[in-house]
Amino acid sequence: MNRGRLLEILRPLVAVVIGLSLGLLVTLVAGENPIHVLSVLLKSAFGSRYDFGMTLYYATPLIFTGLSVAVAFHAGLFNIGAEGQLTLGALAAAVLGASFAGTPSWIAPILATLAAFLIGGIWGAIPGWLRAKRGSHEVINTIMLNFIAGGIASYLTLYWFRNLETQNPETRPIGPGFAISQWAFFGGAPVSWAFALALLTALAVWVFLWKTVPGYELRAVGQSEGAARVARIDPAKVRILAMAIAGGLAGLVGVGEVLGGAGKFKLGFSPDYGFIGIAVALLGRNRPVGVVAAAILFGALHKGTADLDLETEHVTRDISLVLQALVILCVSAEGLFHLRWLRKKRAAQ
């Protein structure tokens, strides 16, 4: 491995360490022993099969959203809309599962997975089309579509598919054939085959981007629209395709959350997986393997900080959120620094 590649991997890790140190400093100010906090963090994320299972469970949606952001990024697009895409993808899986509750189990999860991918993909393709054909910027459109997706999800959940047996804003439960089994190895943590699907998806994204013609064309458009045109590639088509794939990937979050987890669509189930996905993609350098690693790291952080409130005296939920936010901030700042460095390199040429 040459020096450049090594730095490429080292730098984001350094950013994580800096962010974590800053966060621990905050806990020190709050009156806690940072070493104790760190040990709680580690133990809570990796301490037992159950803890590690929870870490993987939290990592699963982040792999999907991280891949979603990464694919769009390779096409030169910034997908801020993973949140809306995953909302509708999960809703689609839940609605299908509730409406056709009798579907046999050998086909039901596959159908629901396809539905989540398809609906997420359509929701992603809309800003892709708007950018490609109308020239309006995908950042603004994806953000606005997040709100619209939230509205649609609320409306459908509350007025069409409401679970009347509870007071909670959620859909009716999916049929038993749709549920995918959780891995007993992790002692009750809801980590399921959805995690395996996430790993497979990461592999598929890698193969698509680096081994196929459409993937090559997608990356070519992301690098240079002019050069792509000369190579008879239609940037408009590629952009729509890229955003559709990005949307579909985000939609797959529904597989773990609905089929492998809650068994229903709960309004507001996502603690901003779509946005954390941006940080995951940045930290993972937009490479599938990097995204997987980054997602597990963020999953561990999520699991670890969740327990700080209980295990320590002074670290409240708010402070653990601050700790998480500091790590994300450092990672994104490092990512931005990386982009600036790239631009400088290009300018120097």
Binding site: R219, A220, Q223, S224, G226, R229, V230, L342, R346
Partner: peptide, 12 residues
């Protein structure tokens, strides 16, 4: 004419 813009993928 402009090989950086239309001829090459500079970071590939």
């Amino acid at each position: 004419e402009d090989r950086h813009r239309d001829g090459l993928l500079l970071e590939r």
